[in-house]
Write a protein that binds this DNA or RNA. Structure first.
Lengths: 189, 189
DNA sequence: GTCTATACGCTGATAGAC
DNA sequence: GTCTATCAGCGTATAGAC
């Protein structure tokens, strides 16, 4: 391993473990053996497990922010943006049946340290805000058609995607694709 | 505590802990201190934590089965059945912000012993089957209106309800009600 | 059936050498 | 920055008295 990369690699492995096993399902030992280092080295970069947890969520939050501001997304049509959102979630499934951040963190929410709870809340609210805006403008511009409030429609879509990744674990990957298709049926014109 | 009730009370407390903290988030100590008994007494009734986990899921599965066969549900219209399904999930929220069984167990799925994985799968597939049938017949009889396959529509609804309980933890209870209302908008005639 | 006592691996975490 | 050594506490689990 290249020195200097360690911290980032710890976050990488930690993120994968979080989305696979849940926050209470992985330990520093999982990470140290995966990276072939000692537990103490992880504690050097992240004194407490909480620090690692916060770092993982913060990075994911910023990654999403960058994604929304990327040229590819900025220039896309509303329908393409919705498809891109589906692809974002589909990536978790492709990565060996991960769940999404919201699904992992909200389920363990009551056992999380408050710093992680706050970061989780901020991340999820950002995603909801962006999705609400997408649904709102998309309908105004005539690309989408659905009843009721844009925020409520965004909630149905995001919660369904979240549940879809979880349910894919007891059924199969086609379950996720069936759900995204059905969502398109529901909001398409 | 009345002797003989202990086993059932352990399942009661265990179920509550499972839906609040997740399978990896609670221990025999949580249960023993809640019931004011010793850890060893729990091991008498459930030698391994796996045994308790399986018992919790089996009971929930049977409870759902009885619910579907109850007179109240049998005699209900399709719209009333859908509302009753919403009430079933809303009860988790009312109980202090629990998530549903699917949400808790699927998120921890990869860390669960195989016996629990199998019971989880059976339970979720039962629920999906019943919901699919409800959506299918409800549309045939003209009470529902939605595009595409009944099973896919059932998947969207169930996953959304599952995600709704989780998301309510970082927002509030009104989030759940907004989602059920939006689902009604989407499948109503 | 419930208890006390006990085992022992894993957990997050720290001290200090290199 | 990474290591070895070490820690106390908690986890599941068992043996055996009552």
């Amino acid at each position: 391993m290249l020195p200097g990369d360690t911290k980032e690699q710890i976050i990488n492995v930690g993120e994968n473990l979080l989305l696979n096993l849940g926050y209470n399902g992985f330990s520093y030992r999982h990470i140290s053996s995966a990276l072939n280092i000692r537990n103490a080295s992880i504690h050097y970069h992240f004194p407490q497990k909480t620090d690692l947890g916060v770092a993982i969520i913060k990075r994911a939050k910023e990654r999403f922010e960058k994604w929304t501001q990327s040229q590819k997304i900025q220039e896309a049509t509303f329908s393409e943006k919705l498809d891109a959102l589906f692809s974002l979630f589909r990536r978790f499934l492709n990565a060996g049946g991960q769940v999404c951040f919201a699904g992992s963190l909200q389920t363990d929410f009551k056992t999380l340290p408050v710093e992680m709870q706050m970061e989780t809340r901020a991340f999820i609210l950002n995603m909801l805000k962006w999705s609400t805006n997408l649904l709102k403008e998309g309908r105004e511009q005539g690309e989408f058609k659905y009843p009721g409030d844009p925020e409520n429609q965004a909630l149905v879509i995001l919660t369904s995607l979240q549940g879809a990744l979880q349910t894919a674990r007891v059924t199969d990957a086609s379950c996720f694709d069936a759900i995204t298709q059905q969502i398109k049926n529901l909001v398409g014109r």
